[in-house]
Design a protein around this nucleic acid. Structure first.
Lengths: 127, 127
DNA sequence: ACGAATTGTGTTATGTTATTACATATGCTA
DNA sequence: TAGCATATGTAATAACATAACACAATTCGT
């Protein structure tokens, strides 16, 4: 058990949530547990991001618990439904590889890669 | 000439800038031209994004003029140097294709795709 | 077991990014 | 030229994120 109390609270809240949560969503949900101010949330999130237990969705300013336990070199991709908000995390090793190749060719040292595909999920597109 | 005055002002400011600009950067720079309030900037940006003359860098909350004149199905990728802030836009048709394949397999209707690789550019990594 | 160093916590205040709402103006088109 | 869609100007506010400071808990070397 390496997570502190606040980190656990935030992590559990994210795992429970079926949707991406903003920092302020999380704060609202955790007020009863004693969390009162944004820094308490952001600090926990920073740590969880560092441990790769959580991902940040840049185009949403929101966070999700990582779907795949075994951590994945920071190369996760996400599809995000603009209608219902559903998010799916997936991994495309080929894409990782192409981006790695591009980086080494450019002598760019990659640290984190964001891939977010926004549109309409199967369910919402059908209607 | 299809751009309105504000749209042109913002577009020119972005083309001139060698670095990504936030909405408030742009606002500061354009105050002398008569732009006073955020919505004036955001509205111009919305239009420019729609026309694909400009890209939004989600991980930076900033904007750049599109490097490639001929527009490119919304599949641009960007490398962003965390040290000097330099941004390079590039296109990897293979990646576009893999993501398209994934989408059609999942019946996900993609609208916009964000690919941002953050790290250290060749120049900054050397030091 | 002790003290130092690191990491985490709680809190207030503030900074930064983005939108809502409403009134007015401009330009196209039937 | 009336009507409609699009653009503008402005004030206020909402949403997202960090700085700074004091203090508590944990870890680690000796």
């Amino acid at each position: 058990m390496k997570l502190t109390k606040n980190q656990q609270l935030v992590y559990e809240a994210l795992k429970q949530a079926e949707m991406p949560q903003t920092a302020y969503n999380l704060l609202d949900g955790l007020r009863d547990e004693g969390l009162r101010a944004p820094p308490q949330i952001y600090r926990a999130l920073d740590k969880l991001l560092e441990l790769e237990l959580v991902h940040r969705l840049e185009s949403l300013n929101a966070f999700v618990a990582c779907a795949h336990q075994h951590h994945n070199d920071g190369f996760s991709a996400f599809s995000i439904c603009n209608d219902c908000g559903a998010v799916e995390e997936f991994n495309l090793p080929q894409v990782s590889e192409i981006l790695s190749d591009w980086s080494s060719q450019k002598a760019f040292v990659a640290e984190t890669t964001t891939i977010e595909v926004r549109g309409h999920c199967a369910k919402c597109a059908r209607t």
